[in-house]
C-alpha cells in the first residue's frame, strides 16, 4: 500500500534501537531543563517515561518529534538518532511524518471525524484510498463502530475518551514508525483510560511506543521498558536527569538505585 514507508521499515534492522539518545541536554532560554540523557529506546516495545513533575520527561518526548523547534529559545545539545539517522539534521516535516504524537489533552481538529484523519493523509500526499484508511485507523482504535454513522459530524462533539482515540487513529493513519504519547490518559476518566491502555497493549506489537505517564499503575500495566527521570537541584534551579532505565519488572521490583526505589514505592504504595 504505502510502499515508501514500508521500504524504510524493511531497511531498518530489527535490532537497532528506534531512538538513540547520546548525552542529550535541553535548555529553555539558558535554563537547563534536562541534562545528559543517554538511552537506547528499543523498537516495537512500549517505553514508559516516568518521574516527578519538572524532571524533563515531556521535554525529552517533545524533542523526539521536533515539536520543541516551535518554541523560541530552546537549545538542544548532544545527539539524537532515529533509526541511525541524526534526528536534528532531518527536516522537521520528515520527522513529523515518521514519528506520530498524541497529546495530553485530546486535540482533534475543529472538523469532521472523517476530516480529522483525512487531513493528515492529504497533507502527506497519500495516494491510497482515503476512505479505506479512515475506516482502518478507526477500527484499530476501536472507534469505528461508535462513529461510523456520523463520520461527517464534528469531532469536537465526541467524548474526551473518543476524542483521544481519534487522535491516536489520526497518528496511526500516517503509518508512522514511532508514536509518542504525552500523558494520553491524564484528561480521561478511569474507564476511558483503561480502554486506551488495552489499545496500547495491542499497538505495541506493531509500533514503537514512547509514553510519558504520571500514573505508575498505568506504566506497570502497559510498559515493556521504563525510564525513570529524577529532579536535581543546582544553584537553586531544578533540572532532570535519567536516573534509571530498564525492563519494567526490574524498575518496579528490583530498582538499581535508591531514588528509583523511593519514587516507585512512595507512589505505588
Amino acid at each position: 500500500m504505502n510502499t515508501q514507508m514500508n521500504e524504510v521499515r524493511s531497511e531498518s534492522e530489527v535490532n537497532i534501537p528506534a531512538f538513540r539518545l547520546e548525552n542529550m541536554s535541553i535548555a529553555y532560554s539558558g535554563n537547563v531543563a534536562v541534562s545528559g540523557v543517554t538511552v537506547d529506546i528499543p523498537q516495537k516495545q512500549l517505553t514508559a517515561l516516568i518521574g516527578p513533575s519538572g524532571c524533563g520527561k515531556s521535554t525529552i518526548l517533545r524533542s523526539l518529534c521536533r515539536l520543541n523547534d516551535l518554541i523560541p529559545g530552546v537549545e538542544i545539545s548532544g545527539r539524537v538518532e532515529l533509526f541511525r539517522q541524526d534526528l536534528r539534521q532531518m527536516e522537521a516535516i520528515t520527522v513529523h511524518r515518521r514519528v506520530g504524537m498524541v497529546f495530553q489533552r485530546p486535540n482533534p481538529f475543529p472538523k469532521s471525524i472523517y476530516e480529522n484523519i483525512a487531513l493528515g493523509l492529504r497533507v502527506n500526499g497519500y495516494r491510497g484510498k482515503i476512505d479505506e484508511m479512515v475506516e482502518r485507523s478507526l477500527q484499530q482504535v476501536a472507534l469505528w463502530d461508535e462513529v461510523k454513522d456520523r463520520l461527517r459530524s464534528n469531532a469536537l462533539n465526541l467524548s474526551g475518551g473518543q476524542q483521544q482515540r481519534l487522535c491516536i487513529a489520526r497518528a496511526l493513519a500516517l503509518q508512522p514508525e514511532v508514536i509518542l504519547m504525552d500523558e494520553p490518559c491524564s484528561a480521561l476518566d478511569p474507564i476511558a483510560s483503561l480502554r486506551i491502555d488495552n489499545l496500547l497493549n495491542q499497538l505495541k506489537q506493531f509500533y514503537t511506543l514512547v509514553v510519558v505517564t504520571h500514573n505508575l499503575q498505568q506504566a506497570a500495566r502497559i510498559a515493556d521498558q521504563v525510564a525513570f527521570f529524577n529532579t536535581n537541584r543546582a544553584e537553586g534551579r531544578i533540572y532532570g536527569t535519567l536516573a534509571e532505565f530498564g525492563p519494567v519488572v526490574q524498575v518496579f521490583s528490583e530498582p538499581q538505585k535508591q531514588e528509583t526505589y523511593d519514587y516507585v514505592n512512595a507512589r505505588s504504595n
Partner: peptide, 13 residues
Amino acid sequence: KQMREGSFAVGAT
C-alpha cells in the same frame, strides 16, 4: 496552541 501542535504532528506545514 495544542491544536496547532496536533497539526504539525501529522506533518502539516
